[in-house]
Design a binder for these strands. Sequence first.
DNA 1: CATTGATGTAGACAGTGACAACATTATGAA
DNA 2: TTCATAATGTTGTCACTGTCTACATCAATG
Lengths: 200, 200
Amino acid sequence: MTTGTYHRENLRETLLEFAERTVRRSGVEGLSLRQLARDANVSHGAPARHFRDKQALLEALALDGFQRLNQAMTDAAATSGSFDTRFRAIATAYVSFVVENAALLGLMYTVKHGADASETLVETGRRSMGATVALIAEAQAAGAVQSGDPERLAFVAFASVHGVAVLATSDMLDGVSVEEATDAVVDMLLSAIAAPGPLA
Amino acid sequence: MTTGTYHRENLRETLLEFAERTVRRSGVEGLSLRQLARDANVSHGAPARHFRDKQALLEALALDGFQRLNQAMTDAAATSGSFDTRFRAIATAYVSFVVENAALLGLMYTVKHGADASETLVETGRRSMGATVALIAEAQAAGAVQSGDPERLAFVAFASVHGVAVLATSDMLDGVSVEEATDAVVDMLLSAIAAPGPLA
DNA sequence: CATTGATGTAGACAGTGACAACATTATGAA
DNA sequence: TTCATAATGTTGTCACTGTCTACATCAATG
């Protein structure tokens, strides 16, 4: 332990953690740099040393969110099993992340869409679809999925699953459980994407 | 014309119009009650007579958005033609609205999801799916669509189309045009929803 | 007319994001 | 070791914001 009040362990991560917690509890509009500084027992000017802007703080938060999301999806894609199983795993992972991080996801898309979004943020966000594209391309090669541009197929799938997730966080599924809704959409996607086989 | 500076025609609508324009150009974060008051040539306290809160202003904005969206969708559903045609019209109307009012739509969902959302707002938002549900139920009765809970089918369809719209505003369709993406998803939905007929 | 309710004004207050000047610490070259 | 320098934190300040309160003005109604 050093002499006392000055140096912090690493303020940047501390601030991000508090920020994440605040966003989860009170939404983005409840986020204040000064309150964050108070949470971290630090003067109101300190955060500026680590984040030029409030916007920069939000960007860092969004980037972290995309990285965790991508990790969850690639992990899900790495499970062993049939194409259907793995595809469902990815979809479930995506929906779960969105449901458990609803406010953060809103922030993620807002910031990414913003005019001053950094290149790495946009790139990381775009990479979200990567695992799905790869899985579909692989399944195409194995003959389990109909031919066609894998990006296009992945886009359709990604959009549908994303829609379920968003509606789930908007209380629009009227009694239907999230799992049920996800399964319904995945069923439809799988039947629409499957290679036309001898089973007709 | 009255004597002069005091009474305004109807400030409430004027404020809403300026607010809508500001949100369209600068997003929700660029919205300030005081700036709005300046735009309307009115003192900074005047808006409080029409909107208790900034939140109340946002709610009114969101409500108006949902009403316009619902109108656009029911209009689209009212076009004559086959089920496929009308369904595609609804989907296109939804995607168009979202693309043309991206910032507003974000606000709409945020406010609706918020803890202090008014009952009418939630109800109006929920009604968005109404036109789709009605159309699907009608098509089921006519034998053009497979049986099953129409709400459930509509939910899947709505979610997928919503996903396309959101991804479209997030620059995630990588060169594919919005119309193309919409068509692809609609094609998939139609083939998945159609009644199993003699064509197999 | 006088009252009353609706609407707009003016002033104040605390909180916020951003900036600048200064203080403290760590580090590394001499 | 010493000391210049960069990194990090502090303090004070500024303009701006949302909200509140007291007051002014208007419209309508008895």
